[in-house]
């Protein structure tokens, strides 16, 4: 997995609440058996018209945001399905971090498995960063995972929380499966005990 340490970049503003996974990557594009190649259909229905032409008003179609690495957005981002295609598509575009007041649970977890950092900040701080995002190239946002801070373009520093284990994995690009397999003897022991206690399973 790709490491995440720090990032300074352009943030794209998407001030909508409840952006769901069907908006992020509509289901007709889930028919792939690969993790990559989803970028062209990221936010498909917001990004293209019925003829497949780009809608110029959509934020990621604007020249200032084509290289955006951060998304600043509204509460409950990523609600809906469990499709990991949503973070895959965002990562494929180049988005490495998201800043929002809250996320849907499964989406939030899925981000970390892909070297992406979803940051939770209170609405008033998100509002400050949303203003930065609206300025495009003129207001870069800095994220530092080690110190757990986001710094706005004019130097305001906002601290965020992250679970220590998740942070450790992200900083070092660690693969969950490999880590868990180090505990295989504990899994064996649990399985044996459970086979005695609940043999019907």
């Amino acid at each position: 997995m790709e490491k995440f340490t720090n990032l300074t970049g352009v943030a794209a503003p998407m001030p909508l609440v409840n952006i769901d996974t069907d908006m992020i990557i509509p289901k007709q594009f889930l028919k792939t058996v690969q993790r990559t190649g989803l970028v062209k259909n990221l936010f498909d229905e917001m990004r293209y018209d019925d003829q497949g032409n780009e809608i110029p008003d959509f934020v990621l179609n604007q020249p200032a945001y084509r290289q955006a690495q951060i998304l600043v957005t509204g509460e409950n981002f990523g609600c809906g399905s469990s499709r990991e295609h949503a973070p895959w598509a965002l990562a494929d575009f180049g988005i490495r971090a998201i800043i929002a007041p809250s996320y849907a649970d499964i989406f939030y977890n899925n981000c970390f498995k892909n070297g992406m950092l979803p940051i939770v900040l209170p609405q008033d701080q998100v509002d400050v960063l949303m203003e930065d995002a609206r300025k495009g190239e003129n207001a870069r946002i800095a994220i530092d995972l080690e110190s757990q801070t986001v710094t706005s373009a004019d130097g305001q520093v906002f601290a965020f929380q992250i679970d220590p284990f998740t942070k450790h994995c992200l900083l070092n690009g660690l693969d969950d499966v490999g880590l868990t397999l180090e505990k295989v003897s504990a899994i064996d022991a649990f399985e044996n005990a459970a086979a005695q206690a609940r043999p019907w399973i």
């Binding site: 990991e84 498995k113 868990t180 295989v184 899994i187």
Partner: peptide, 15 residues
């Protein structure tokens, strides 16, 4: 529900 990375994790480790 879980994501695909977690599907792989459960397939490999049952945890």
């Amino acid at each position: 529900g879980i994501g695909t990375s977690e599907v792989e994790h459960v397939l490999a480790t049952q945890t």
